[in-house]
């Protein structure tokens, strides 16, 4: 990791965020590298989703700066934040597909909303991402007719279609069987390899996937990044909290609220 401004895509500088009396992020410093797969892990309630919402400009920090591609997004107006978010793709935990639209219409939705592409060009692009995620045969179906794994793949196709520079995955394998989890993990890697320059940020509890697929792991604990580095750093860490999380033990120094 060279840490140069060009390599760093997203930079949190002393970011704090509280909800009522509960401080979720506490002077958080972290950086996420461009074109890499970064896993943000930590136990429930440690601020993983809050971190992602800050990256997307859906939440503003109480204190600190969030620099994305050189701009402090905390200073964006609501309209600026909306147009900034068009550079993101997001795969939601439950895919969040629009029930009233077919798979194809769901995938075309971001293009229809944000581009002036012709229908023919939109269909060509939709075909590309459907091929990539293996959902071409589902194009005429409605989300209610799909399995959980199929919904995730369609959600990923929708997230990819507008060629985002940052792709966010919110617990992509939670509640899924090992085979589908493996398939989703493979898709994350494939997307990162095929879509050159795309920065992938994954929120997950899945340590196995984090170790196998990530370039960088950020471990959140008590509102701070207790560790940020490649999987080997995490594996070799002697920090008792990290060892406890890695071993999945209840006994240890980690506090459960």
């Amino acid at each position: 990791m060279d840490g140069s401004p060009v390599a760093v895509m997203i930079y949190f500088q002393g970011v704090s965020k509280s909800f009522g009396r509960h401080r979720v992020l506490d002077e958080l410093d972290l950086h996420i590298e461009r074109g890499k797969i970064t896993f943000i892990i930590g136990k429930s309630g440690e601020g993983k989703s809050v971190t992602i919402k800050h990256i997307m400009g859906l939440l503003k920090p109480d204190k600190g700066r969030i620099i994305v591609d050189g701009s402090d997004i905390a200073e964006f107006s609501r309209d600026e934040a909306r147009s900034y978010r068009r550079h993101f793709g997001m795969l939601f935990q439950h895919a969040a597909l629009f029930d009233s639209m077919t798979v194809l219409d769901n995938i075309l939705f971001p293009l229809r909303e944000h581009t002036m592409m012709s229908t023919k060009d939109m269909l060509v692009r939709a075909d590309e991402v459907m091929e990539q995620t293996g959902v071409r045969q589902l194009r005429g179906q409605f989300p209610g007719e799909l399995s959980t794994g199929e919904k995730k793949r369609v959600g990923l196709a929708r997230a990819l279609v507008a060629k985002p520079s940052v792709l966010l995955y919110d617990e992509p394998t939670t509640g899924m069987d090992p085979l589908i989890s493996e398939m989703i993990d493979q898709l994350i890697v494939e997307v990162s390899q095929k879509e050159t320059g795309i920065t992938s940020i994954v929120i997950s509890h899945d340590l196995k996937a984090a170790m196998a697929t990530s370039d960088q792991i950020v471990f959140l604990y008590k509102g701070k990044a207790a560790l940020s580095g490649p999987p080997d750093d995490f594996r070799q860490s002697q920090d008792p909290v990290i060892r406890q999380f890695f071993a999945g033990k209840v006994e240890g120094p980690m506090e459960f609220l």
Binding site: R82, R85, R86, A96, F98
Partner: peptide
């Protein structure tokens, strides 16, 4: 409830 409104926001749509 199904996060579809969050999805709209995430796509930069009001």
């Amino acid at each position: 409830v199904n996060e579809q409104v969050d999805a709209l926001e995430a796509m930069g749509i009001s």
